[in-house]
Structure formats: C-alpha cells, structure tokens
C-alpha cells in the first residue's frame, strides 16, 4: 500500500475530509450553512452526540464485543430525572447532575456486572436494559413530558459563555482532554487497551480485567446520564424517549472515529471528529428536506459501509 492510500484509509484523515466536503455541500445547497453562528449551532449538537459517544468509546475499546445499546434509554433517564429534580430552578442544577449521573452510573454498573460475571453478551444485556429503563420511565412519568430545565442550564448550552462560544462546547473540550488523559496517562487507560486487545494476556499481567470491564459500563451510563442533563438544557424539557435518537449515531461516531468494534484500538479525538461529521451529514440531509426514515437509512448505510471499509484495511495490514 502506498503512502496516499494509507493516508486515505486513516480514519482521522477520512473524518476530516468528510467534514470539509459536507460543509462545502451544505454551503452550496443553502448559502449561509457554513456561517459562524451556524457552525456553533452544529458543534453544540455534535457535543451532545460526542459526550454520549465518549462512554460508548470506552466500552468498545475494552473489547469482548463491547457495545452499549442502552445509552439512549440512559439519556432519557438522566434527562427525566434531572428535569424533575431541578424543576426550572437554578438551585436544582447540582442536585440534578448528581441524581442523574448517580442513577445512570449504577444502572450502567448493572450492565457491567451482567456482561462480566454472568457472561451475557453486551448486545443482549444492554438491549434488555434499554427495555427495563424505558418501561420504568413510562411507569414513573405516566408518559407525559415532565420537568423543566433551569434557566442557567439552558443558557450554558445555548448562549455564548466565553469568546463567543457556549459553555457546552468548553465542556466538550474538557471531556476530550479528560478522555485523552484517562486513555494515555493512567493505568486504567492502558488496561482498557490491553484487555481490548487480548483479555487473557491482560489477566496474566495482573490487570483487574473484570473490575475494569464492569466499571466501563458504569462510566458509559454516567456519560449518557450527564448527556441527558445537557439534552434537557438544549430542549427545555424532557420526555421518556428523548434519548432514543442517539443510540445508532453513538455507535457510528465511534466507528467513524477509527475505533475498531473488535476492541483494543482507536482514540477519542477521532470520535469527536466522527460526531461532528455525523451531525453535519444529518444537517445536510435535513437541508435536503429528507424525511426521518431516509436519514435512518443513510445512517445505517454509512455504518455498514465503514465496517466494510475498515474491515478491509485491517485485513490488508496483516
């Protein structure tokens, strides 16, 4: 393989090129698409996807077919809990974050325990958990939208905070740095890659593989719960299926970002680019006035296409 093709199959390069191409397409279709305030708007939506994809990344890198399909239900859970706890008052923001994060972390740990100790396949475990959480939410809220975002939270997500950039984007940047630090500068991060690459070898170097795997699902739940708080800040109120739309994109963003679904490789920087590219794609499709089903079709197609593409390059590298 020569240098040029190698560069083109690099996920980071590919994601960056798609972002530029999508911006160009968007601008052509609808002048003003790539304007500054529009881009901030796009990045805000990307940040929400990017944060839930952070937890997804950890679970996928950890290997053993790791995937968390319950992130959608967890976002809903976080949003509904947060909305009801803060009930429109700024004083409720901190308790809301603690309750939403705490509850989703615990539910995530249950996922982890099922996957690790009962050896339930992650796909099945997290899909089952989705049903349990969604059912519970409907019982609790009787299916009616409930809870209100505090004004400060809404302005944190939607209004410029510093240098014309909303707080949510600063938060996302912080998440990016934290993910880099976790993965590249802590034993936990080294262990996640090691066990994703070869679980048996990781155990034989003394890494607490089972504990870590359980924790990863807890962290994924936590990130989804925090994302839920951000979502209610973005939309103003919460309803029981508000998180559903993030499940498939969170997986696609991870794959666009160059994380192999087999585990043990990739980094979060790529996933951030992946989240932006995916959000852009969605905007372009909306600009084209494509219906929901059409976007779903294209999203699914993109995922399968990427699997095909990266599956091939992996084979070529051996």
């Amino acid at each position: 393989m020569n240098r040029a093709t190698l560069l083109l199959t690099n996920p980071l390069v590919l994601a960056t090129l798609s972002i530029l191409a999508l911006l160009a397409v968007g601008e052509t279709l609808s002048p003003g698409f790539a304007r500054g305030d529009q881009i901030i708007r796009l990045l805000t939506v990307s940040a929400i996807l990017g944060m839930v994809a952070a937890g997804q990344s950890l679970v996928v890198i950890g290997g053993r077919e790791g995937i968390d399909l319950s992130v959608g239900a967890m976002i809903s859970l976080g949003a509904v809990l947060a909305g009801n706890v803060m009930a429109g008052s700024d004083g409720g923001i901190v308790p809301a974050i603690l309750v939403a994060g705490g509850a989703t972390f615990v539910v995530g740990l249950v996922n982890g325990l099922g996957v690790t100790f009962l050896r339930i396949p992650p796909l099945v475990m997290t899909l089952g958990m989705t049903g349990v959480v969604q059912g519970g939410l409907i019982v609790l809220s009787r299916g009616i939208p409930s809870g209100n975002a505090a004004p400060s939270l809404m302005s944190f997500v939607n209004r410029p905070l510093l240098l014309g950039v909303p707080g949510i984007l600063w938060l996302w940047a912080l998440v990016g740095i934290a993910m880099w630090f976790l993965l590249r500068r802590t034993q936990l991060g080294y262990a996640i890659y090691a066990m994703g690459s070869n679980e048996r070898a990781a155990e034989l170097t003394g890494l607490p593989v089972r504990l870590i795997r359980t924790l990863l699902y807890g962290l994924s739940g936590l990130m989804a719960g925090i994302t839920g708080v951000v979502v209610i800040g973005y939309t103003g109120n919460s309803f029981v299926s508000v998180g559903d739309q993030y499940v498939l994109p969170s997986v696609i963003a991870v794959v666009i970002g160059g994380i192999s679904l087999a585990g043990g490789s990739g980094n979060y920087f790529g996933v951030m680019l992946g989240a932006i590219a995916l959000t852009l794609l969605q905007s372009v499709l909306i600009t084209l006035q494509m219906e929901f089903w059409g976007r779903q079709l294209i999203f699914g197609g993109v995922l399968l296409l990427l699997m095909l593409l990266y599956g091939r390059t992996k084979q070529l590298r051996v």
Binding site: A194, S197, N198, A201, L204, G264, S265
Partner: peptide, 9 residues
C-alpha cells in the same frame, strides 16, 4: 500470541 501479546498495541 495467546498469553502475552497485546496485538496492535
């Protein structure tokens, strides 16, 4: 390959 290598790392 089975007991020691972190393949791809």
């Amino acid at each position: 390959g089975r007991d020691a290598a972190f393949h791809g790392r």
